[in-house]
Write a protein that binds this DNA or RNA. Sequence first.
DNA 1: TTGCATTAAATTGTCAGACATTTAAACTGC
DNA 2: GCAGTTTAAATGTCTGACAATTTAATGCAA
Lengths: 244, 244
Amino acid sequence: MKIDPKSSADLSAQIAKSIRDAIVSGDLIVDERLPSESELADQFDVSRPTVREALKRLAAQNLIRTQRGATGGAFVRRLDYDEAQAQHVTTSRLLLSMNAVDFQTACEARFALERACAPLSAQRCTPDHLATMRAEIHRQTQPGLSDERFCDSDVAFHRALVDGADNPVLSYQLAGSVEAMQPLMNMITFTQRNRDSIVELHTRIADAIEARDAAAADTALTELTSYTLDLGDQAMQARAARKP
Amino acid sequence: MKIDPKSSADLSAQIAKSIRDAIVSGDLIVDERLPSESELADQFDVSRPTVREALKRLAAQNLIRTQRGATGGAFVRRLDYDEAQAQHVTTSRLLLSMNAVDFQTACEARFALERACAPLSAQRCTPDHLATMRAEIHRQTQPGLSDERFCDSDVAFHRALVDGADNPVLSYQLAGSVEAMQPLMNMITFTQRNRDSIVELHTRIADAIEARDAAAADTALTELTSYTLDLGDQAMQARAARKP
DNA sequence: TTGCATTAAATTGTCAGACATTTAAACTGC
DNA sequence: GCAGTTTAAATGTCTGACAATTTAATGCAA
């Protein structure tokens, strides 16, 4: 293994890329042990700190894990759904906040994706998922619930809906989208009337899913979309009025 | 700033988390300069190599960029759509390969999501996007096109469809899903008859989008979904027969 | 022979200090 | 005022060392 010496990039970045490529291409398989830091330093003809910086880059991407001790070292790590999803949520949130994505755009994207999995959820949803949805709806009716808790419950409801499609890849993609929007949703003030309307729509969605009625679920989701968009518009206008 | 000394985690991981939290929470804003490595070392009471390992972790997540020279340092980086998307694709691909996600699951997820944006695309698609779709369809009819190139073109076609929805958040989420599936699609051998069928379906989709007919687009996409699933099944069976 | 405590070895984690490289600003001479 | 030079600040890299952790080997006693 050798690194292009005339490349202007950091050595640690080049080394990280080299190892990452080996992992992505399947050249290094899950749980395989990488050479020790000293060996890597020799192979790449750099010092150990440089190798370590490269390994830390990979660790930050959850591509490897390290173990200390005699049989320790760096091992290729199996990326599981939860980790990937957490990464996805973090990245999506940063993307929304750093690029000042407006509420409409994010909301539209979220509900469009959610509608995509509603038919599948109507087909395959288990009693477990339905129970979760009902429980969250009930939580949303409780008096004295803070706006933030209401949003939490809203996310939990929609996660159950998505998970009901029984497709982990879909869940991974969608949960990222739904949870990434939470900070934006948290800017909304939910009046009692708002909550009543949302709870009613959630109930209709749950009923439709339970009845295996994809069309009804789609209709309710569409209404929820426009209702949420309206709420967002009002919140934005209120914000604009406060800070002219 | 100080770090929990009794935590068992790596110092560099703790420092990275501390800085990452500051960025995600908005405490550090885009293009803001972090203290120099020496200053950070003093603040966190660790050595400079340890700080550097932490910074490399953040750099690997595209959260910071570094500049050398007198006015250099580490700066909070604006995460743009392309970068986030590239990250998303990489993560998704690894997730699929490392967890041996089967073709059906990935395919179902992909087309479910794609159907979600077809109505929006039918509403807003520009002549530009349509032209791209037509061009890719034409490319798919060319004789002597390798299976891999055919897949490339397929991805490009669907990207144009997705981008036609004119919602960058949707594009970001979906492109991840579509492109992540490409390695799986590449395992399929496309016969001339297969290609003809796909091209016909693509044409129907493009026609529907051009006619602003969301329902027709949805129908064609549904057919394309089941057709692709069939192709996948055949490919899997062929594989199983070759390697019993 | 078996069981247990001790020791040794390998590996990552951390530190200190040094030098190289790059970049922009300050300075100097004209 | 301008061009070239110097200087200072910052990251990039290297060397060598030591600490902490974990496993394996070793040796001794029952």
